[in-house]
Design a protein around this nucleic acid. Sequence first.
RNA 1: CGGGAUGUGGCUCAGUCUGGUAGAGCGCUGCGUUCGGGACGCAGAGACCGGAGGUUCAAAUCCUCUCAUCCCGACCA
Length: 583
Amino acid sequence: MRLSRFYAPTLKEVPAEAEVISHKLLLRAGMIRKLTSGIYTYLPLGLKILNKVADICRAEMNRAGAQEILMPSVQPADLWRETGRWEYYGKELLRFADRHGRDYCLGPTHEEVVTDLVRGEVRSYRQLPLNLYQVQTKFRDEIRPRFGLMRGREFVMKDAYSFDKDEAGADKSYWDMYHAYDRTFRRLGLMFRAVEADSGAIGGNFSHEFMVLAETGEDTIAACTACAYAANLERAEVMDATPSSDKPSGEACGCGALAEVSTPGKHTVEEVCAFLKIPAARLIKTLLYDVDGQAVAALVRGDREMNEVKLKNRLNATTVTLATPEQVKAWTSAEVGFAGPVRGMLSVTRILADNELKHGDAWVTGANKTDAHYTNVSLSRDCGANIEFGDLRVIAATDPCPRCGGGIEFKRGIEVGHVFKLGLKYSQTMNAKFLDENGREQFMIMGCYGIGVSRIVAAAIEQNHDENGIIWPPAIAPFEVVVMSLGGKEPEVAAKAEELYLAMIEAGIEAALDDRDERPGVKFKDADLVGYPMQIVVGGKGLANGIVEAKDRRTGVKTELPVADFAAAFAAWRKDVHGGWGA
RNA sequence: CGGGAUGUGGCUCAGUCUGGUAGAGCGCUGCGUUCGGGACGCAGAGACCGGAGGUUCAAAUCCUCUCAUCCCGACCA
């Protein structure tokens, strides 16, 4: 491609709308433009990158035996009513009616459509397993779209769906996809980690997320420093044994008599601890939740964080929301901040406590009375037997790895892939059945597997950039190399640049030729900004000495290549650059 | 949905408090000079100041309504 005719309007200044680096650079490098909130046009450069990511996904899907299809983005409401998601999915599902008043939605995902497709055709176990995928534009009416391509409303996703005749087959399909994803992200040239995840709203019982590691990631993952264990924060298990060193020193045993103390106006953990001069680890935080309409109390140590996903899973609930101040008053007869498990909790049906609370005594809790707390609380003595213990808290950096007991560290990541084992959730509600070997009807066992194609474009930038611009991994760079012609008035420079460019094209290398009538500085800045992994600089001085300059965008290292034997020298250098990416 | 902010040429922003001929830089067009890290000079083009009402002799500026965008939170892949 000759840049003189290429539509890639670069920007010197950052448009005010951009907050994160990938958004800024995508805009500045002329790769995307916003049409409206959360919805973007891909310009030629942006589209090339998007397509490269998609093609790598396709190659690995095909390799794993999945077959590409393309499903509609507009879906009829009836299908969604079958699975109950027309009601359940909420406002994120963009709904509209056609001229006849029939309801439709813009597909945020395609479980219903693909299940409908398969149930109509697949009748026999002989037709299974089956894995169908597509690369498609999805629409989710996000409450708050932000960060450019990172969290748009319209986005491109690769989604695959597997159908199996039995559990063993479904497990194989799952792990086949897991490994295909592993290969995909390796090929993309990104640093990533597969983590155990909660299966969330789509449902199911087993899942992994693939996270691109980047400081700016929205998600936190807990990773073991010794073994391969990694999980997202919602999921990460906490072992049921508090290390003794974690206990407040010298305070743990010898529980005196329950006592009420006045704590006027002290309703946060911080305030109470400061007022009573105790560490937060001595306090029990009592959180009240509305769980599917029932009042539930959940207890966690004062210095810990409640993990609502764990709570929800433990209770097998569909909705878990923190109680409103009005609810708190009704249930405890006290203002927010004074709830506790020791008597007086009206209308609370269940009390759950984090495992850690088994291991201590002499706690401080709210007294269910405004401006009062209890000290010397023993859960076993003062609350009776109705407390259910379980793993309810968010893992902390001081906790041991739940697999090997090693250390846990937190990393930031961007979720770019997710594999789910769905089980029978959709096949049952949508009646997707087949006849097994014995002539008996069985429900198909499903799995679904997503990769955020457009999000990967943003994630790759978050992970690979510097102050000058983007640094594309070669596998997804819009062009592998740019040949910069710094000719000025010297026609032989332009001619040589053109010659090298054409030779590269001939050799099947994706090259761009910067033949614009611009000053050298502009070309250098744009080349760094756009992020071509390799830059070839053809200038008058160099040519006089029989060399052109080659710059590795990632390392910034410049190498001189002889014009006389350019093809061979370039090939060797190129191999070197790729090698630096671990390719 | 709650909280905060912003809408002025393609982009970044000043001007709004205190009403009185719409500004700057970048970008764009032409000419000339320049040519290895976003050059310089000269001459230009380009804005019904987000929209609708209102107050006023007079509104980018004050008032009311409305729309859009961005940030924080809840939600989510």
